[in-house]
Every structure is written in structure tokens, then in C-alpha cells.
Design a protein around this nucleic acid. Sequence first.
DNA 1: TTTACTGCAAATATTTTGCAATATC
DNA 2: GATATTGCAAAATATTTGCAGTAAA
Lengths: 157, 157
Amino acid sequence: MNDDKLKTSAQNAFTQYLLQKRLRKTPERYAILDKVFDTVEHFSVESLYASLEGEAFHVSKATVYNTVQLLIECGLVRRHQFDNKSAQYERVPGVGNHHHLICTQCGKIKEVKDPELIKVLNGKRYPTFTTDYFVLYVYGVCSRCAKRNRKNKNDNK
Amino acid sequence: MNDDKLKTSAQNAFTQYLLQKRLRKTPERYAILDKVFDTVEHFSVESLYASLEGEAFHVSKATVYNTVQLLIECGLVRRHQFDNKSAQYERVPGVGNHHHLICTQCGKIKEVKDPELIKVLNGKRYPTFTTDYFVLYVYGVCSRCAKRNRKNKNDNK
DNA sequence: TTTACTGCAAATATTTTGCAATATC
DNA sequence: GATATTGCAAAATATTTGCAGTAAA
């Protein structure tokens, strides 16, 4: 699925959700949805807000918060909180899933796809719990930090 | 490993870490470590602080924040941020690992063990990344919410 | 016409920071 | 004795809330 199709399908899903919950179809909500689906990377409420202001579409931050929450509830956006700064969000991936490698030293985050693991996870069933999706964080040390560690160790000798 | 042994081994690991980093072995740090390892459930800085006050051991919140951060850095504590309230922490599990089932409707969190999955995860290697541990969140709907959903749907008919 | 939604500003809550006093090494 | 650590309070930051005005249904 390419990005255009992904966006269209997200718009349709959002409309369905709004109808079902009897919520209103406001221009603000669709503008935010569009911007979210133009964004491949992680984003924060702040960066999303700035990005909307950047193209001269003004929405209040409260509305951004509200709408992102709606998008999470209807499954179009996922929330991550990697540190105790602001929450990070991402649109749901088009095809496949990915997980996050998090460096415990520098905080850098890398996305990796692992179809085999996704398969194992999707096969999982838990009693008395209906699974929607999985979020896997792999904590460790990235190559850059590992290199720096080796260097520092040698310097101390 | 029982809880006493777990605590002792955590104390030793912490001491090693402090020595290695040339940090000081203060009574506050060890009191916090002890309290953390007396706590099986998730805790917040606030609850940890209250718990220490409760047994008349006074430490400032800043020190609790600092020490919890240290414990994370030396791998004895893990951090979760399930919502945008305060961060939740937990001591590292004695044996095996567990992951978290998170209900997207009521926010309830349940821990489950899945040795088979742990095994698959532990077998994983990522290029240019040295894995320390995995954190898996399974998002979905708990049985209580599923039941309530069915009821509401019927009520609307 | 009804009332859900928006924008704005104030309120809340958590975490971080600065600094003087203290305790570890 | 040097300085890392503590406690306290103030500051910084993210998110939530209340309310009056606006717009979707």
C-alpha cells in the first residue's frame, strides 16, 4: 500500500469511526489526520502543531491533543513514551509492523522489521484478552555507543 | 531465586556499579534499593517516596529520582510509561521475564509469562546493536471491557 | 436549534535544576 | 580536604481543564 492509498483508507476509517461514535466531522480533525499520514517519522503534539501552523492551518494545541487521542482510539495512531519528555506518536504502518531498538546510553531509536517475529507474535493468544497489536521495545547499546565505550575503556588504561 | 537472594544480589550488583563508576555509597541509595526490591508491583517515584516516608526514612524526592535513574542505568530497574501520568518502574524480575497486557479501554495492566516467547526473543540478534533486554506490550481489550462492550451493544438494540 | 467542538488561558502534575549544607572517600 | 550527594524550593515542561464563542448536524 502506498502513502496515498494509506491516507485514503485512514480517512475512510476515521469517517466510519466518527459516524459510529456520533462525533462531528470537523475540518480540524481531517487536517490533523492528513498531516499525521503525511508524516512517516515519529512526531509529538508539539511538532504536529508546528507543522500545521507552518502551512498556515491554525488549530489550537488542545484540539491537536484531542484529535490525536481520537486517532489512537480508532487505531490509526500509536503512542510511545520513550523518555520523560513529550510523548511520541506514529501513524500505523501500512504493511507489516516494526519494532524499536532503543539505545539505553544515547536514547537513539532505530526501527527494524522482523517478519518472522511478527508472525510468532500474531500467532499468540492470551486467555481473557483480545489482542489488537503488539509493541516491542528492544533495549540495548547501539554500535556508536559500543564503540565509544571501547574507546573510553582503552583511554583509561 | 527467592526475594532475599534477589535483594542481596541486587545490592552486590549496585555496589559493583557504584565502585566502577566511582560514585558514592550513601545510605539513601541503599535504602531506596532495598525498598525497590521489597516491592514486587509497579511503583512510581511518588509511591516509592511515600513508602520510604512511611517507615520514617526521609529522603528528598530529588534523591529518589536520581537513585531510580542510577538503578535503571545499572540494569536493576525498568521504566514503563503506560499513560501520561507518572512513570512506572519495576525491579528486574528474579527468574524469567514477563510482558504486559494493556487494555486500551480501561488501562488495566496484566502481567503474563510466556517462556516460549522469551526463548524466541532471547535468540534474536540485531546487526550493530547489542541487546540487553526486551519489553513487550500487548495492546487489546480485557475480558471485563469486552463484556461491557457486548452489554452496551445489546442495550442499544 | 441543539450541543459538540474549538481556541484560549489558566490550572495541574511531574520532573528537573540550582544552590547551600553535608557526608563520603 | 576535596567534591559528590543531599534536601529543599523554585523552575521548566507537558498535558488537562473550564468556559465562552462557533459551527456541525
